[in-house]
Amino acid sequence: MLSDERLALFTKWRVGAFGRKLREVCEDVSYDDMAFEEKVELCVDAEIEARDGRKIERAVRSARFKIKDACVEDIYYLPDRSLTRDRVARLASCAWVEARESLVVISESGGGKSYVAQALGVSACRRLMSVRYARLNDMFREVNVARTEGRVYDALDRFSGPDLLMLDDFFTTPIENPLNAVDLFEMLEAREGRGSTLIASQLEPDQWYLRINSELCADSILNRVVEHARFLDIKGPNMREYTARLRAGKDEDYWK
């Protein structure tokens, strides 16, 4: 039997999952008929799975998602919602991220675009891709603060570098600082052919012009985002109201 002292050594050597699985194999009679090599392989697989899990957790933390528990498994596929399991599964495979393509997710307010977008971002994290999520105005705020501190290019690099950059609430409000239109153009220019960009917006691309004062920047931004982008247009019920009703029903059942 593997003692607690011996098991602690595996943790000290940073192969704790291997040690825990080894203890299970030693104490569970259902493993007795397995060959020695098969038992070792189980322990190695347990350690690999644990390490990948920690990498995924770090990737999700680094992404800075607003909805930290978003996942494609929890997306609702309602009869009157223009969203299918097959379409989501294809996007969740992240082939478009590997191909450095852009994805534009559009829905009205409450349509669930932010949740779906972040669920796809988590799917990219599960494949150990680097991801950065931000609301567009929050990104501008971070860049503007960095500009006052003389490190604007460091801030731009943080958004230009990930495998997948996710910009939520895209042009929900107009760009007030003309420098930010240039910042956005520079980021998208730097990412072209090097990384994927996911944009979630309430507005169709032909309405984005109204949010940018510079016509030249507007054309440049649209060309880089829209020209070769995939589109996911979500129509259907207000998901905030739908999930609120679900929660209310569960609470009512709890007190019965």
Rank of each mutant, 00 (worst) to 15 (best):
G110M: 06
F170S: 04
Y153P: 02
L167M: 08
N177M: 00
D157G: 04
Y115F: 15
S123E: 12
G161L: 11
F170T: 07
E149G: 00
S130R: 14
S160W: 11
P178Q: 05
G111F: 03
R141W: 07
D168L: 01
Q118N: 06
R126C: 02
E142H: 12
R127Y: 07
D183P: 00
V122G: 00
T148P: 00
Y115I: 10
D169N: 12
M166W: 07
A155T: 10
C125L: 02
E108R: 13
P174D: 06
E149F: 04
A146I: 03
E108A: 14
Y133M: 08
D169P: 01
V122R: 10
G110D: 06
L120Y: 10
P162D: 12
A146F: 02
P178M: 07
D183F: 03
F171D: 10
D163N: 14
N180I: 00
N137Y: 08
R127Q: 15
D183I: 00
L167A: 05
S114A: 12
N180T: 01
N180V: 00
V116D: 03
L164P: 08
C125H: 02
G112M: 06
F159I: 06
Q118T: 12
M129W: 14
L164H: 05
G111N: 04
L167E: 06
V145H: 14
G111V: 13
Y153C: 05
R158F: 09
S114L: 02
N180C: 12
F140I: 03
A155P: 10
F140V: 11
R158P: 01
D157H: 15
Y153V: 10
G112R: 10
N144H: 13
E176F: 07
N177V: 01
V152G: 08
A155N: 12
T173I: 08
M139P: 09
Q118R: 05
A146T: 09
N180H: 08
G121D: 07
V143N: 06
R132N: 08
K113A: 11
V145A: 12
K113Y: 03
